[in-house]
């Protein structure tokens, strides 16, 4: 089997290599891409989609399929991390340790004992417990809202400036990961649970796919947003602009959720219980 795989890789690699000689040179002014493809986008994108940023227009509209499958690839990366790392049948630890925050006393609760209720008076301690640091905590509390705001700005402003779903999603995910680092994983999981991140990750891809399917339902090709102009008050050009925005939001949600999901699995070695 391994040898078969090697042969297949050699054959296809050789084919790719031999074909690559036929490709036009880098920066060749007479190549088809430079003579009529790029000029069309540069000149017509603003009339077709009313999006000033040509990169966004190409990414989410002209090359919509490409971006759809990119989003799917990111989601499947999250899935792969989940299936490789996640340990579901973990054994309950023999004893758990809790620290009373006011007095600093540590309680040892044997297996089967009654655990303290989820209050602010006790703090669970495990092998990778770190004492919370006031300076880091306060700074992150100060900075995280601004990072999230900036992420939303990057997603929403992708039409006009560099940015879009992928970049904004990564920034938003980084904000949540920063919260997890500065506090602890358990508190973060209470706010953004694993289930939430998985559902949001698939939800983002479904938003993208659903927009494409909606275009079919409204009587145009897959991901041809101009058909959304059946919604009253939209002409085909601005419909394409709004279609791009919806798709970018979907991408942003998916990327955020997958970033957080991968972090959860990596940081706690798949246990989501111990760690950080």
């Amino acid at each position: 089997m391994k040898r078969l795989g090697l042969i297949a890789i050699m054959v296809f690699g050789g084919l790719l290599f031999s074909i690559s000689f036929e490709l036009p040179d880098l920066g060749d002014a007479r190549s088809p891409a430079s003579t009529h493809v790029s000029p069309y986008y540069i000149e017509q994108a603003i009339h077709d989609t009313s999006v000033p940023n040509v990169v966004t227009a190409i990414l989410a509209d002209y090359r919509g399929y490409d971006t759809l499958f990119e989003t799917a690839v990111i989601f499947s990366a999250g899935l792969a991390c989940f299936f490789l790392l996640r340990i579901t049948d973990r054994k309950a630890p023999k004893a758990r340790f809790y620290r009373h925050l006011a007095t600093g006393l540590t309680l040892r609760v044997e297996k089967g004992g009654r655990l303290p209720e989820d209050t602010k008076e006790f703090e669970r301690i495990d092998s990778a417990w770190v004492p919370s640091d006031v300076i880091i905590n306060m700074t992150c509390r100060l900075v995280v809202p601004f990072i999230q705001l900036f992420a939303l700005y990057v997603i929403a402003h992708g039409h006009h400036s560099p940015g879009g779903g992928f970049q904004g999603g990564v920034i938003f995910g980084a904000a949540i990961i920063l919260y997890a680092i500065s506090n602890n994983l358990r508190r973060t999981l209470r706010r953004t649970s694993e289930r939430t991140s998985a559902l949001l990750g698939s939800g983002g891809v479904i938003i993208y796919l659903g927009t494409g399917l909606l275009c079919i339902l409204l009587g145009a090709g897959f991901l041809n947003y101009s058909s959304l102009s059946l919604v009253p008050g939209l002409d085909p050009v601005s419909a394409r602009s709004y279609g791009i925005l919806i798709v970018e939001i979907g991408v942003g949600i998916a990327v955020t959720a997958v970033m957080v999901w991968i972090y959860y699995n990596l940081a706690s070695a798949g246990k989501l219980d111990e760690g950080l």
């Binding site: 770190v130 640091d133 300076i135 880091i136 700074t139 100060l142 900075v143 601004f146």
Partner: peptide, 20 residues
């Protein structure tokens, strides 16, 4: 402003990790 807030904190966190 943001660099002024975050950069010393990052230094503090790295140093803390070193001590720990």
């Amino acid at each position: 402003v943001f660099v002024f807030i975050t950069s010393p904190t990052a230094t503090h966190a790295i140093l803390d990790a070193g001590v720990r």
